[in-house]
Amino acid sequence: MAERDPKPVRYRARRTPVTWVRGGGLAALIFLLPMLFVFGAFSWYPIVRTAIMALQHTNLVQPATWVGLDNFRTVLHDPLLPTAVKNTAVFAGLALVFGYPIPLVAAVLMSEVRRLRGVFSALAYLPVVIPPVVAVLLWKTFYNGDATGVFNTILGWIHLGPYPWLQSQGTALPSLVLESTWANAGGTVIIYLAALTGVNSELYEAASVDGASIWRKVWHITLPQLRGVLLLTMILQIIGTAQVFLEPYLFTSGGPANATVTVLLMIYNYAFGNSLGGDYGSATALSLMLAAFLAIFSLAYLRATRSWSTR
């Protein structure tokens, strides 16, 4: 029986403030301080404040009073909540069905183009740099409900319409998705284009030698190679669309008849919709509920797709 080696004796220098400073600890802390301050002031403090405010009744002028979980009960009993959740889910779903594949298709097509790729990239990205309010005002004229609206005029050439677009409970939400897709697709296209440059061109050449069609190359090479990026953009898009606010606020104010009220618009209305001062408690309570849902959803998504994204 071999004798066990005795445990190696580890000599550790005693840590004192002096050794910590000499070891660079102080310098690291000093370099860290600005970031800690910025995160603390603009990220962590608001989060803590939100959590506290969700348990209070306050108009931000008079002293706040503790109300326990009353704000959560108010939100959960609000008859508008199911409508807002449904509208948000429909918006996210439509954006996923139509808005998610479009940038991918555009990126794949653009990567096939040998000349003027930069021009196409710039054109695709242009809507992203247009200020959102300007874009919405522009699209409002497109969506004008009478026959003189841009879309209705174009459709009128082929004897269609006029359609009410934003003035109908059935078409208002899809109209917002259309504008949102136009406005946001450019950013995702650029991400896909960057990811596509990382795909080994030899794979395509080998597939070509084997006689694969473009469709088969996309299906068997491009998509599997991009799966990590695809999964990431999908969760980012879901989180983004679950917090949709700009379009319903600027286009329709949640109308007609609450057809475009979303969860975030509801939060805004709790906080600022009443000119006599906001119900900041309910607003923060609903914010926390949305944040909790998105956190749980993201964790579940990451767990469910972990094996696929790293395969």
Binding site: L60, S253, A271, F272, G273, S275, L276, G277, G278
Partner: peptide, 30 residues
């Protein structure tokens, strides 16, 4: 009605501003 409370909370109202008849009393009480 849709923006007044936001300006009020954010402290971005001018020193002198206008409100409708319907709101002043309650805002004053608050």
């Amino acid at each position: 009605g849709s923006t007044f409370a936001a300006k009020l909370a954010a402290g971005t109202l001018p020193t002198v501003f206008e409100v409708p008849f319907t709101d002043a009393r309650t805002l004053g009480d608050n």
